[in-house]
Design a protein around this nucleic acid. Structure first.
Length: 185
DNA sequence: CATGGGATTGACT
DNA sequence: GTCAATCCCATGC
């Protein structure tokens, strides 16, 4: 069952925690989320910290939209916008356990192990074929990209990955014991 | 208008 | 473990 707008219109930290176990679906591909991180406009690590710009407009828009941005000149990273319109906050989806379309995903990495296919936010987008052109997609109504309710795994919490600021906050949520997470907790 | 760093990855030592 | 690749955009002159 697809997640509705009400699911996203809550504390970004609650949304991030509950997205673990849910399913991302794009075209013929799908996977269970095993790792997320939450970002809120009040902290410098969040893109929305600088306020509304062309780049961050989606983050301040209605909840349930996709925010896809380009990082390090190479990778697309997928986020789900949370909280009410006017509040800049989103959940970074960092790793999936691939469930459908695995052969299609392997087109880009023929020799890769399934556990590595969507392990890490950049590879996740590469595996599912998600690019920046999907930023702003309404995950509640789109027929291309959306999220669905899934399992309710045991959750482990740890610090976020790759930040230069706010490294101490424990805003990373992982499925306990999953072999598909990007970095061990 | 120039510059520098980034929510990363894969290749290499 | 270290490091380059590579582009967007926020910041500052």
């Amino acid at each position: 069952m697809r997640l509705d707008e009400g699911f996203y219109a809550r504390s970004v930290h609650d949304v991030a925690r509950e997205l673990v176990g849910c399913v991302v679906r794009h075209g013929e591909t799908a996977g269970r989320i095993v790792e997320t991180e939450s970002y809120h406009m009040e902290e410098p690590a969040c893109h929305a910290f600088a306020g509304v710009t062309e780049r961050t407009r989606t983050l301040f828009g209605p909840p349930g939209r996709a925010y896809v941005y380009f990082s390090y000149g190479i990778h697309s990273l997928l986020n789900a916008v949370a909280e009410d319109e006017g509040v800049g906050a989103a959940v970074l989806i960092r790793a999936l356990e691939p469930t459908e379309g695995i052969e299609w995903m392997k087109q880009n990495y023929p020799a890769i192990r399934v556990t590595d296919l969507a392990r890490g936010p950049g590879r996740l987008c590469a595996a599912l074929g998600i690019g920046r052109e999907l930023s702003g997609t309404d995950l509640v109504t789109s027929d291309r990209l959306w999220l669905e309710r899934g399992t309710h795994p045991r959750i482990r919490v740890s610090t976020r990955i790759g930040l230069s600021r706010d490294q101490h906050r424990r805003l990373r949520f992982l499925e306990h014991g999953s072999a598909f997470v990007s970095v061990p907790p």
